[in-house]
Write a protein that binds this DNA or RNA. Structure first.
Length: 446
RNA sequence: GGACAGGUGGCCGAGUGGUUGAAGGCGCACGCCUGGAAAGUGUGUGAACGUCAAAAGCGUUCCGCGGGUUCGAAUCCCGCCCUGUCCGCCA
């Protein structure tokens, strides 16, 4: 969510930045002016309300005094005055609330502004590779490499058919060594990330609407989620541990020396994949349920850009340790998520598909989620008056910055290991780093 | 799920209708004291929003959340959420 003051004070700059998102290329100005208009109405109503309320409070105090002094005539006069004020106050308050709600609604669906160094573009084709982050080269084979599901089914360790009978499309049973590979990868990633300074967390997998609002899934992307129960007190299944991990700091005022806060969790993720009909229908690339190790950092505004690079290093490190070739791209303005200021995607090489596929996404969300959650910190040195560009919500408290990234998506890492380490006979070599976890060097047909 | 008890500032904790944003304590900041520190001592110390070019000031709101009663509610009433204890159930 955006800082209203910033929009008021820098209307043109705001419009310009918003328009860099292709979805708003046409009507960024219109949307912004609608908000400003609502804002003006809201403030008008608020002022009227406050003035009437101030008089009411004053009169009420005077009534108390008059009664104490046994001045019944005075009390009566004041009582009449307040009675007359009441209708006006009620109307003012109703107006103020109505405008406020409308304003919040309009504000809640606006995406974050891309950072200045994010390339402009329409879709994934306009993403720009970060050359310095490339690792390894496309794995060479002296046979035609297979896709993961061909390998898995031939090994008898990956069963889409029975999963279909039990749960429908986009589910899978892993068995034996592949089930163990999933577990080994998760454990390996958790060990590696906690060694990198992330505190291990086991978070709730079912969360409330407010948490989804905080990280930006609601109100706009309700249809992407699974809901565990209907009605007011519903629970949603997390589509990523970003939701419970980031919301760890919601409605808190943290001490600056607690920052940066780094946490990690290995959890199942549930996604309805609405709108993805027909995409990646075969295999494990796109499932309704998959597991992922998530990294979340909460930092000061000054630290977040460096933290973003650090987090991307941590995610890449898993692939390096596993010897998996990959590249990193900066998402263009058209491919970036709702809450992001800037996003790096890590794409791993999949020989079976003969292309790079996303395996991690690391985003800096700036203060966007923090404002939605009410996550702030108290600065040690509060000489930071009037920071331009927001970040300050008043007094001695400032909004934190939040970042999240996959470190990594376990299911897709499993695919990458299978495809890159396959042999001509359909067996799969276990990468050195995983052998202690797997207790074997090769996955073969049972 | 049932019964009972609770949810107050960064933390602990008083407060059952009137100038209470809220006693007291802890913590924190600054000063005094000290060669320096500790102890002691003094002062200060919530947030959000509006108004203002800005600050000061002023105003509004906030004692879990939402409604209600009242001229006036942290205090009374109703609903919900959460926490604790006991019972039931359960991995």
């Amino acid at each position: 969510m955006h800082d209203l003051k910033l929009i008021r004070d820098n209307r043109d700059a705001f419009v310009e930045a918003l328009a860099r998102r292709p979805a708003y290329a046409e009507d960024a100005g219109k949307k912004t002016d609608e908000i400003l208009e609502l804002d003006a109405k809201w403030r008008g109503a608020k002022t009227a309300f406050e003035q009437h309320r101030a008089r009411q409070n004053e009169a009420s105090r005077a009534i108390g005094m008059a009664k104490k002094n046994k001045d019944e005539a005075q009390a009566k006069a004041l009582l009449d005055e307040v009675a007359n004020l009441k209708a006006a106050i009620q109307k003012d308050e109703a107006d103020e609330r109505a405008y406020d709600e409308e304003l919040r609604k309009a504000l809640a669906v606006l995406p974050n502004l891309p950072a200045e160094d994010v390339p402009f573009g329409a879709d994934e084709n306009d993403n720009v590779e970060v050359a310095a982050r490339r690792f390894g080269s496309q794995t060479k084979f002296d046979f035609k490499p297979k896709e993961h599901f061909e390998l898995g089914e031939a090994l008898g360790l990956m069963d889409f058919e029975r999963a279909g009978r039990v749960s429908g499309a986009r589910f899978v049973y892993l068995k034996g060594a592949l089930a163990r590979l999933e577990r080994s990868l998760g454990a390996f990633m958790m060990d590696t990330q906690s060694a990198a300074g992330y505190t291990e967390i086991v978070p709730p997998l079912l969360v409330r609407d407010e948490a989804f609002f905080g990280t930006g899934q609601l109100p706009k992307f309700e249809e992407d989620l699974f809901w565990a129960s209907a009605g007011e007190g519903r629970f949603g299944l997390i589509p990523t541990a970003e939701v419970p991990l980031t919301n760890l700091v919601r409605e808190e005022i943290l001490d600056e020396d607690k920052l940066p806060m780094r946490v990690t969790a290995w959890t199942p993720c549930f996604r309805a994949e609405a709108g993805a009909a027909g995409r990646d229908t075969r295999g494990m690339i796109r499932q309704h349920q998959f597991s992922k190790v998530e990294l979340v950092s909460v930092t000061t505004p000054e630290q977040s850009v460096a933290e973003h690079e650090r987090m991307t290093d941590c995610a890449q490190n898993i692939l390096k340790l596993l010897g998996l070739p990959h590249r990193v791209v900066t998402l263009c303005t058209g491919d970036m998520g709702f809450g992001a200021v800037k996003t790096y995607d890590i794409e791993v090489w999949l020989p079976g598909q003969d292309r790079y596929r996303e395996i991690s996404s690391c985003s800096n969300c700036g203060e966007f989620q923090a404002r939605r959650m009410g996550a702030r910190y108290r600065a040690k040195d509060d000489s930071s008056n009037g920071r331009p560009g927001g970040g300050r919500s008043g007094g001695g408290t400032r909004l934190v910055h939040t970042l999240n990234g996959s470190g990594l998506a376990v299911g897709r890492t499993l695919i990458a290991v299978m495809e890159n380490y396959q042999d001509a006979d359909g067996s799969i070599r276990v990468p050195d780093a995983l052998q202690p976890y797997m207790g074997m060097k090769k996955i073969e047909k049972a």
